[in-house]
Design a protein around this nucleic acid. Structure first.
Length: 503
RNA sequence: GCCGCUAUAGUGUAAGUGGUUAACACGCAGGCCUCUCACGCCUGAGAUUACGGGUUCGAGCCCCGUUAGCGGUACCA
């Protein structure tokens, strides 16, 4: 069983789980499931200052909601630093790495990224100078270390040749050794650095496929070098295209805020299967026209070959970015919203009602009767509403009038449907007629209303639309007589009588 | 700066080894349904396949160049 697939998702806990990370986790998970392999979660927390426990919790929470619980882990990279140091020592002994006694550069005001051009320009001026400590005899280095002199450990990158590896998505990757610096493995304060840590951990965890964001593509060469120096066979690499915001820029927690956080989708009424389905299609295609897929179908159809190379734009409404989260309707990618609605209207009703139940408990709309004597009614009403909702939260917000008498009348609706003077007389009259029905059914209610309209010489539509607003406070909704049945005779009559006050 | 990756309607993606009207989904517009909205159904607009060369009878697919975007380039991850 040596070739059992083992993959990992290795986020750094510098923020909540965002869509990009979620997509990476999902692809790893799909790959593992498809191959009956193991999905591992490893938190890359070696940068202690930027890591926090709350962030780790956030990531776990997001993954759990998405149904991507790891088979192993979470492991914390920080707990393996001894292994990392040991690996570095082995490389020193093998002559594949060396101690660098160059004093550490003090941090500057500008960000490191901004300094890079300067650095290379300076280097160009002096010519590609080799690190003076690269060939320092080990005995002398050991002596200086013994004396307490601080030193970083750098990898000895070969001077000539090319690094090469096969990427399952991007194909053959080559990079000249001369373009790779002798990277630092261990800081002079003994702190192991990322490239060393990942490699050591991936070896330790017997990772067979490294599936991660494309932002790691060029650095993979450095890792390949470390694998080789360590004398360990390479895993397979597969890099995933990045996900951009509408402006073609990388998704960022800082800049794009809550719209990119997975938990936002949970809190705003997304069905996790729908989000998973949507995310799966961001950068991957099953090769067929079928886009709505269950988890099982995704697992079966997923393949690294179907992964796209170009970055995908997550098309959320950027113009409304600042006002987030006020925009209740079109706050995120329209296709994601559509897909969520698709799930809401096509999933088994029992599944839907249990999600709505959870939402109602949170919103204070829950009644225990919905699980007992009114169970049937609850399911029917949810079913009646689902075709026009796109989020679970719509049931508690837009659907409120169907479940409680404590609801608001929308001003625009009142203005539109209750402005006709004749309604002052007609509505109470209609209420009495409806009250006198023995068996309050859809057809009976309809017959009463239409007759009443005819008797009074008004169009049925006038009464129907007025009644909708009188009963729900809204101008849109299900068919009028379905609403009446959902509300029941008593509440229908009551609300119709009370509506006079609005005229 | 240097190195690398990418480029198909507004967005997500299709288009076996080059083969003719570039397909599907979302979105958008119009229509049908109807008491409203949504769903559903129908129709439509929207692409000189980033640009320029080349190979070929034939290029979205192959080659070269250009441009743009992005990523990396750190004693960050």
């Amino acid at each position: 069983m040596t070739d059992t697939v083992r993959v990992r998702f290795a986020p750094s806990p510098t923020g909540y789980l965002h869509l990009g990370g979620a997509r990476t986790a999902l692809f790893n998970w799909l790959f593992a499931r498809q191959h009956k392999g193991t999905f591992i979660l490893r938190i890359e927390d070696t940068d202690i200052e930027r890591s926090s426990d709350a962030m780790v919790q956030g990531i776990l929470e997001g993954m759990h909601w998405l149904g991507l619980d790891p088979d192993e882990g979470p492991f914390f990279q920080s707990s393996f630093v001894e292994q990392h140091r040991a690996a570095a020592r082995r490389l020193i002994e093998a002559g594949r790495a060396y101690y660098d006694f160059t004093p550490k550069q003090p941090p500057r005001d500008r960000t490191v990224k901004e300094q890079i051009p300067d650095r290379t320009r300076a280097q160009a001026l002096i010519g590609k100078e080799r690190n003076p400590y690269r060939d320092l005899p080990l005995e002398e280095a050991a002596r200086r270390i013994e004396a307490g002199e601080p030193a970083a450990i750098r990898l000895k990158v070969p001077e000539e040749g090319v690094s090469r590896f096969e990427d399952l998505v991007y194909g053959t990757q080559e990079r000249d050794y001369s373009d790779i610096e002798d990277l630092v493995l261990i800081r002079s304060d003994g702190h192991p650095l990322y490239n060393l840590s990942v490699v050591v951990d991936d070896i330790e965890m017997r990772i067979t496929h490294v599936i991660r964001g494309q932002d790691h593509l060029t650095n993979t060469h450095k890792q390949v070098l470390i694998y080789e120096a360590l004398g360990v066979a390479l895993p397979q690499f597969a890099h995933l295209p990045l996900i951009f915001a509408p402006g073609r820029e990388k998704l960022s927690k800082r800049k794009h805020g809550e719209v990119v956080s997975v938990t936002t989708y949970r809190d705003r009424g997304f069905v996790s299967d729908a989000l998973v389905n949507f995310l799966a299609l961001l950068g991957w295609s099953p090769g067929s026209d079928k886009e709505i897929m269950t988890r099982q179908e995704l697992i079966e159809k997923f393949s690294l070959e179907g992964v796209h190379k170009a970055a995908a734009i997550f098309n959320f409404n950027e113009s409304k970015e600042d006002s987030f989260p006020q925009d209740a309707r079109d706050w995120t990618d329209p296709k994601a919203l559509w897909m969520n609605g698709e799930y809401i209207r096509s999933m088994p009703i029992e599944e839907l009602t249990s999600m709505v139940a959870k939402e109602f408990k949170k919103a204070g709309l829950w009644s225990d009767g919905y699980e007992t004597d009114k169970r049937e009614w609850f399911a029917q009403t949810v079913d009646l509403l689902r075709a026009r909702y796109r989020a679970i939260t719509d049931f508690s917000a837009l659907g409120r009038p169907y479940f409680t008498d404590d609801f608001e009348y929308e001003e625009a609706a009142v203005k539109k449907n209750l402005k006709d003077e004749r309604l002052k007389e007609l509505l109470p009259g209609l209420a009495e007629r409806l009250a006198s029905i023995d068996e309050f059914t859809h057809d009976a209610a309809e017959a009463v209303l239409r007759n009443y309209a005819e008797e009074n010489g008004v169009k049925a539509g006038l009464l129907i639309n007025a009644a909708r607003t009188a009963l729900t406070g809204q101008s849109v909704g299900p068919g009028m007589f379905d609403i009446m049945i959902a509300l029941g005779q008593k509440r229908t009559v009551e609300r119709l009588r009370q509506a006079v006050a609005l005229l």
